[in-house]
Design a binder for these strands. Structure first.
Ligand SMILES: [Mn+2]
Ligand SMILES: [Mn+2]
Ligand SMILES: [Zn+2]
Ligand SMILES: [Zn+2]
Lengths: 161, 161
DNA sequence: TCCAGATCTTGACTCAGTCCAGAATCTGAC
DNA sequence: GTCAGATTCTGGACTGAGTCAAGATCTGGA
């Protein structure tokens, strides 16, 4: 391995990761990457907060731009639960899915029982070139279930909003 | 079957459907239901247009209110493609999924190869009470594929926006 | 070091959707 | 047929998430 082969020298170095993907290294992008790594399923707003805490100041636009670049390069993943702002994570390439609580909106990672690439082979792809199967499970987390345990199983589930 | 058993007398009658779900029958709600039935994956704006064409006038609020009631009662389903307004359909209960084109945003129905309730049994539900598995396939429709056919398989896929 | 081009900042702006409140209208139980 | 309560209308304000545009600043290759 030569000294000029940078592709595997610093596997966990964000700056090297950016360079390897032909992206300029900036303080903003590094802060965004660290924010996404630090807090799984963070929202853009959450990234703004964390990045500002780290480097003092960053514009909302720069955060959106950075997130967009990182998503495009496959360094992070964007998930978009219905009715809530987009969230970002650095677990990419493992085709994992998400479980969202209807009560509090919490998001947790989950693996599919079907296998590594569940449902990616749809019954009929209609000529589409499918590159991703996004699976979101909806339900209620243990905490939210406890809050509304009326001992009886009732079909009406009240919405939090 | 007595004459007062209304639950299965008019399986395709929107008014009866509403009554069976304890919802007042109004011209607006009927028009909204027909709009959603007539055009798969219609947006709220689309419903406004179609309903106005049918009954002459309806307020935007009434459309949103009606859609909300129908979704709550499980008579229609709301889906929310990334970056586009919510869409509605009357195919409910069959656990079908959606295929969204990254290029033009078109949405088509799709059945899962896995079966009737794919992935609903997650490997580990983490104590969550799962009631729905939402699956969205991402890809490019035949038209959009044709537009960017550069004969070579390249990893960079430009976004339409 | 220099500089073209990439990136960031700032502030206005869009869009979809919600919320509000009073008045008018409609529905369905009786 | 009556009438209480549910629904709708008008129309405007408002929110949250995200985008746009123009000018300032920074990055990295030469
Ligand atoms: Mn995840
Ligand atoms: Mn559908
Ligand atoms: Zn919860
Ligand atoms: Zn397309």
């Amino acid at each position: 391995m030569s000294a000029h082969d940078t592709s595997h020298q610093h596997p966990h170095d964000p700056a090297a990761l950016l360079r390897d993907h032909g992206v300029q290294v900036t303080a903003q992008r590094l802060a965004v990457m660290r924010a996404v790594s630090a807090q799984p399923h963070v929202s853009a707003d959450g990234v703004v907060e964390m990045a500002r805490a780290e480097i003092g100041a960053i514009s909302r636009q720069a955060v959106y731009d950075s997130l967009g670049v990182l998503v495009d390069k496959g360094l992070i993943r964007r998930i978009q639960p219905v009715g809530s702002p987009a969230r970002f994570e650095d677990r990419v390439g493992d085709n994992h899915h998400h479980l969202v609580c209807r009560g509090c909106g919490s998001v947790v990672d989950i693996d599919c029982a079907v296998g590594a690439m569940p449902c990616l082979t749809a019954a009929d792809d209609l000529g589409y070139e499918i590159d991703e199967a996004e699976v979101v499970y909806w339900g209620r987390c243990p905490e939210c279930r406890a809050l509304t345990t009326t001992t009886t199983t009732e079909s009406t589930l009240e919405r939090s909003h």
